[in-house]
Design a binder for these strands. Structure first.
Length: 519
RNA sequence: GGCUCCGUAGCCAAGUGGCUAAGGCAGCGGAUUGCAAAUCCGCCAUCGUCGGUUCGACUCCGACCGGAGCCUCCA
């Protein structure tokens, strides 16, 4: 209401808590507070760490585009047992390791076009906030200190387990050496006493460090308030992490922590079996193909490769495309095959953009990107075929951010634009009215791809030479071949094309001339 | 064992109690092309199995089979 011109559109969001979709209604009118659980920075990030950020970046883009103000927080867990262990193993400090791995994480996000994060709080910068939060819980009788540790008392939380439908009785708990310090095995640590030599902060319970779950409760409260709109993370965080966050925050505030709990599906290594150390296919295994399709979650423990390495082989845009081509709650089959397919899909779009540039002289990426969804006049200029596609795209995004359908409509859009160019022979003649329509179409395309965060950067244009010499040579070759074709010497013309193809260069004879690109 | 979820064409992947079950890749036929490439047009699924509810289910319920995630660190 206070933002934009018209009423805000209705956006349905699925919440893990209610297991249903309901319309987005915010705590503060017109303003969305969004918190995503970020990484524990002790190793280079892998593809799994990128899923949430890309999805929530897209969520934010769509919300902002639709008229909301959005504050998006992603935390960095920079104090943790694993960081301590890893830094010790490497002979460095926890702080240095965390800094290094945070830089790696940020560089990866940047490559994928994740631009919308507003605040990235670090646990170590909020120790005071965390301690105050714990003190509050102790004062309310929900937590107790025990020999330098502090634990949350799950028996004091009547609805503990509501996110994952678990009962305290059915819980196993951590066990191990801390078991005897806890009153009940399902209790979890808010504060951990430091062992000698470990990084530590002073607290009312002695030197120590925060437990894992408490930082999110404390920092989300400090930045977004005790009750905010969207809390996200991977499905693997639902229990125990988010369950415990809810327990902490709601016990302290007597308010819902977040209205919507959004969880993204996990990365699966596609067709892992049959290739790398999969299940042996012995006599007991059915000989048919279906049995070979085992997919397993990609995680740190399975030794997923650093994302940086992946970027050396694949365009980030192809990765983003792949992540968005499946509904965010579904698992994503990840691997070289799907990535290659995604890259080819991307090229279909880019061929249209190049075609448009040849016709109109305007680079797609130079087009202004409309950032607000009201724009009926401009959209109408794109013609009667485009409007319903745009409506379908927006309806899909409004329905729990269905990027899979959104992308499908983008493919329809590509076909519509290509057909328009074909039908009016825009490459041969350039009638002003049709050119204006094409411009309007591409503006809509620019607008919608912007919502998904795709095609933010210009691709290397087809026919771009690595160096000036290659460019000159290609020009020469194409000219000589053109003369041969003119003289009906197709043997020579085809020989040139065949040899170039073998060398990895594709020629295209178009109505307006011959173009080349690398395969 | 407990708690979630999934099983749609050769592959990937949306979706709905009843109009023609999106889209992509691959394939096939056609237009276009000197031939290609690119582009366009057309073709290609009855929705894991078996029951039940319903006037009607792929969509709801149950059982079964198969797969995944969580219950321990994990985005």
């Amino acid at each position: 209401m206070e933002h934009g011109t018209g009423p805000l559109p209705t956006i349905e969001i699925y919440s893990t808590l209610t297991r249903t979709k309901s319309p987005l209604a915010t705590v503060k009118p017109g303003h969305v507070g969004m918190y995503l659980c970020g990484p524990t920075v002790y190793k280079p990030s892998h593809i799994g760490h990128m899923v949430g950020p890309v999805i929530f970046d897209t969520v934010k883009r769509h919300l902002v585009y639709s008229g909301w103000r959005v504050t998006w927080v992603v935390n960095i867990t920079d104090v943790d047992d694993k960081i301590i262990a890893e830094s010790t193993a490497r002979g460095t400090t926890m702080a240095k390791l965390a800094e290094e791995m945070t830089a790696d994480y940020l560089a990866n996000l940047h490559a994928l076009g994740v631009q919308g994060i507003d605040i990235m709080p670090k646990a170590t910068e909020h120790i005071g906030t965390i301690i105050a939060f714990i003190e509050g819980l102790i004062a309310k009788g929900c937590a107790y200190s025990s020999d330098g540790d502090v634990y949350f008392d799950v028996t004091k939380d009547a609805d503990y387990g509501k996110l994952t439908n678990r009962s305290v009785a059915a819980m196993q708990g951590e066990g191990g050496s801390t078991a005897e310090r806890k009153r009940s095995s399902a209790d979890f640590a808010l504060w951990k006493q430091a062992k000698p030599g470990e990084p530590a902060w002073d607290s009312p319970w002695g030197p120590g460090r925060p437990g894992w779950h408490i930082e999110c409760s404390a920092m989300s409260k400090a930045i977004l308030g005790p009750h905010f709109d969207i809390h996200g993370g991977g499905l693997d965080l639902v229990f125990p992490h988010h369950e415990n966050e809810i327990a902490q925050s709601e016990s302290l505030h007597d308010l819902p922590m977040a209205t919507f709990w959004m969880h993204n599906g996990l990365m699966q290594a596609a067709g892992a079996a049959g290739k790398v150390g999969g299940r042996p296919r012995g006599a007991d295994a059915p000989a048919d193909d279906a049995a070979a399709q085992a997919a397993t979650k990609i995680s740190k423990s399975t030794g997923a490769e650093p994302f940086k390495n992946l970027l050396a082989r694949h365009r980030p845009e192809a990765i983003r495309m792949l992540l968005l081509s499946t509904h965010y709650r579904s698992p994503i089959h990840f691997g070289e095959e799907p990535l290659g397919e995604s890259a080819r899909a991307l090229e279909a779009f880019e061929r249209l953009f190049a075609r448009y540039q040849r016709i109109a002289g305007t680079a797609f990426h130079a087009l202004p990107c409309r950032t607000r969804r009201e724009g009926d006049v401009a959209v109408a200029a794109a013609g009667d075929e485009v409007r319903p596609l745009r409506d379908k795209f927006l309806a899909a995004m409004d329905d729990d951010f269905n990027t899979a359908i959104a992308i499908a409509t983008l493919f329809d859009f590509v076909r519509t634009a290509n057909k328009f160019i074909d039908q009016h022979s825009l490459e041969a003649k350039k009638p002003a009215a049709e050119l204006a329509t094409l411009d309007a179409m591409m503006l809509v395309m620019r607008e919608l791809t912007g919502v998904l965060g795709l095609f933010l950067e210009p691709p290397r244009p087809a026919g771009a030479a690595d160096d000036a010499l290659t460019g000159k040579l290609m020009e020469l070759i194409i000219e000589i071949r053109a003369n041969a074709r003119k003289a009906k010497d197709f043997t020579t013309a085809d020989l040139v094309r065949t040899k170039l193809t073998e060398a990895g260069i594709v020629l295209e004879d178009r109505p307006d001339g011959t173009g080349w690109s690398r395969k």
